[in-house]
Design a protein around this nucleic acid. Structure first.
Length: 667
RNA sequence: GCUAGCGUAGCUCAAUUGGCAGAGCAGCUGAUUUGUAAUCAGCAGGUUGUGGGUUCAAGUCCCUCCGCUAGCUCCA
């Protein structure tokens, strides 16, 4: 006998073998019709999956209201799409077709190169399939039969996957819908007709099993919903997100530009963007002083041998600008990292344990030859400045220093109202040989790093194997951009290797008057200023908090009669260290306000003849609108207070989310 | 780097089948003197990313390179 516990706490008993859909039918025929899938003891299963014949389970029926159901729907839609493509083109070999946070894709290999021009035909075929409203039927087969079936279906990629990736599965499942049979773990929606709205979005290349040495397949992206309204809302949200893309806003607000003549991936900071950057740098500098860092400066070049010693040159040769050869044997590298230079500052004299921790900080500009297809606005560039620092400390100081770095990063992010990030602990992949250093030092480093992070209760902390730097484990602060793509910002990395004898052989004299090896910590709270500002542009949708705003106040004259008064106000604001400009054009006030609003200027001081007579300014707040007339002194005080406290008044909410839903299917 | 798509005025975009390169905004000039999200008019602005090819004729078709976009791979 099976006891089924439902979410409302009620328990139903079944003496015969039942499926979730049967449980639903017993509750009500309308529920049965609406049931998309079910969650049994925390696992999503199909509505027709037989439940155990006895014992006790918890069951939650999923309808189109549940987010888990949407993933099931999308995965089914991926099947429908693959089926449509197979109907339209010859020789389609299927690979993987999982769901993503916002839709689904299917990777396939076929002769015909699919372009967006093919989308209408594919969508029309999909619509036909959905209209037929056929069931998704689950079929299970033992391994050898499954392989034979995939061979018969002429699906070599599926055969390969069963033989390699699914080697430990004794039986495999397939889903059939009409003539279409696909190796698939499921689950699926009961009938194709449940897909009420779908759209193909894009096509791109994707390597088979994510391996760039293997064949490149065609990946077709799409999304699906339970209603047309949901689809339209989603597409609208994506459009809105695109409007606050930093590349769009950077142009509109005159923040930065990129010139092909200067070079792809090289940011030219326009005056307005440069203000944001320099304010951030000042903010970081103040924190460095508070936290007892010592600023240093180092050159942009270094001998290749320096980077051979550090290991960067051999390891990252492909992604560096080629060495500059001046004379035979005299080769310089444009620096791809600041650490070797800072190491040489450490080595400039003998160090005592009394000198430690030594914290050397520099806004260091580095150059890396990123692959051309990787370049993206400010977020992935070839030249960038890190708010870098290297800490040299004793083994005993590691935990405290590491914690200090994490705290500074967290403080900086939170000051900017950036609370929506995750922390990724990048550990070594034990199966890979790309790492330098001993097994023992890696274990020690990973253990102490994880202990500190756990104790600090960092948001959404998770360990990712294979994400370490080649010289040590790290904690990365990762945020998503307005289109849901994740970017690494701040980073704190532990390094037992550069100081080692095999590398730079760093030493300090301990209290025992004997040489010891220090530990290095690499850290950058913002990471790259380019990427960070790119993120900030999207985070604030271009409307920066007052302390960062390139233009903090704009003086708007109502008419020519108030111009000279306006210019006096402007001068006084400038004298009060506010970033101000005046708009004395022969435009109507409404027009000037509109221009200032579009440039996201936080405050507008409107001056007309009334203000001139009363000695006031009429303050308009970008967010609140007209605040009325007040004395200039009061207005300045108001602004200076907002600047001093670095107040964040408004943050653009991300409309496209990186959602927590797990990938839908593994095959 | 790979796959696919794209590149027209400073910006956003038009230009039937290959058939005289156009608009709005921005800019400049003039008029207007305005009280909380667009005042009016005129002018100017281009070797259609680069180099080659096909054609009587190329923004449009083909090739090269450069750049951009999406995704993959990479990311010290």
């Amino acid at each position: 006998m099976l006891k089924v516990r439902l979410p409302d706490g009620s328990v139903r008993q079944f003496t015969h073998r039942v499926r979730p859909i049967d449980v639903a039918a017993e509750i009500g025929s309308r529920l049965a019709k609406a049931t998309v899938a079910a969650v049994v003891d925390g696992h999503v299963v199909g509505a027709d999956t037989p439940l155990p014949s006895d014992g006790e389970i918890s069951l939650r029926l999923l309808t189109n209201k549940d987010p888990e159901a949407l993933a099931v729907l999308r995965h089914s839609c991926a099947h429908v799409m693959a089926r449509a493509v197979m109907r339209l083109f010859e020789g389609v070999r299927l690979a993987f077709g999982p769901t993503t946070a916002t839709g689904f894709y299917y990777d396939m290999d076929l002769e015909h190169s699919i372009s967006e021009d093919d989308f209408p035909a594919i969508e029309a075929e999909m619509a036909k399939i959905i209209k037929q409203d056929e069931e998704f039927e689950r079929i299970e087969r033992p391994r050898d039969e499954a392989i034979a079936l995939c061979r018969e279906l002429d699906q070599p990629l599926k055969v390969e996957h069963i033989e390699e990736g699914l080697a430990d599965h004794p039986t495999l499942s397939f889903y059939r819908q009409g003539e279409f049979v696909d190796l698939c773990r499921g689950p699926h929606i009961p009938r194709a007709g449940m897909i009420k709205a779908f759209k193909l979005l894009s096509v791109a290349g994707a390597y088979w099993k994510g391996d760039s040495s293997r064949k490149q397949l065609q990946r077709l992206y799409g999304t699906a919903f339970f209603s047309k309204a949901d689809l339209e809302a989603h597409l609208k949200a994506v459009e809105e997100a695109k409007r606050r893309d930093h590349r769009v806003l950077g142009k509109q607000l005159d923040l930065f530009t990129i010139s092909p003549l200067v070079g792809a991936g090289m940011i030219l900071w326009l005056p307005r963007g440069a203000i944001i950057r320099s304010e951030l740098e000042n903010f970081i500098r103040e924190e460095l002083v508070r936290r007892d860092y010592e600023p240093v400066y180092t050159p942009h070049l270094g001998h290749v041998e320096l980077y051979e010693t550090s290991g960067h040159f051999p390891y990252y040769a492909d992604s560096q600008f080629a060495p500059i050869e001046m004379n035979p044997g005299e080769r310089y590298l444009v620096k791809p990292m600041n650490c070797p230079h800072h190491v040489m500052i450490y080595k400039a004299r003998r160090r005592s344990y009394r000198d430690l921790p030594l914290r050397l900080a520099e806004f260091g500009t580095v150059y890396r030859y990123e692959q051309s297809g990787e370049l993206t606005g400010m977020t992935r560039v070839r030249g960038f400045t890190q708010d870098d620092a290297h800490l040299f400390c004793t083994e005993d100081q590691v935990a405290d220093e590491f914690r200090g770095c994490l705290e500074m990063t967290r403080f900086v992010l939170e000051t900017l109202g950036l609370t929506d990030y995750r922390v990724r602990l990048g550990f070594r992949d034990p199966a890979s040989d790309k790492y330098v250093g001993s097994e023992e030092s890696w274990q020690r480093a990973e253990a102490s790093l994880e202990a500190v992070c756990r104790e600090m209760d960092l948001p959404r902390l998770d360990v990712e194997r294979g994400e370490a730097a080649f010289y040590g484990p790290k904690a990365d602060f990762v945020v998503a951009d307005c289109l849901g793509r994740e970017w690494q910002l701040g980073t704190v990395q532990l390094d037992y290797n550069l100081p080692s004898k095999e590398r730079f052989g760093l030493e300090y004299t301990g209290p025992d008057n004997r040489p010891h090896q220090p530990v290095m910590i690499h850290r950058a709270p913002l990471g790259s200023l380019e990427r960070f500002v790119g993120m900030l542009i999207e985070h604030f949708a271009g409307a920066f908090p007052l302390w960062l705003a390139p233009e903090q106040v704009r003086v708007l004259s109502v008419s020519e009669r108030a111009e000279s008064y306006g210019r006096k106000i402007e001068a006084k604001l400038r004298a009060a260290h506010l970033r101000v400009r005046g708009d004395y054009r022969a435009e109507k006030l409404g027009g000037k306000i509109r221009d200032a609003q579009l440039m996201k200027i936080p405050y507008m001081f409107v001056v007309g003849t009334k203000d001139m007579e009363q000695g006031t300014v009429s303050v308009r707040d970008r967010i609140e609108g007209d605040l009325g007339a007040m004395t200039l002194e009061k207005a300045i005080e108001h602004l200076q207070d907002e600047i001093a406290t670095k107040r964040v008044r408004q943050v653009a909410k991300s409309s496209v989310r990186l959602i927590e839903t797990a990938e839908g299917s593994e095959y």
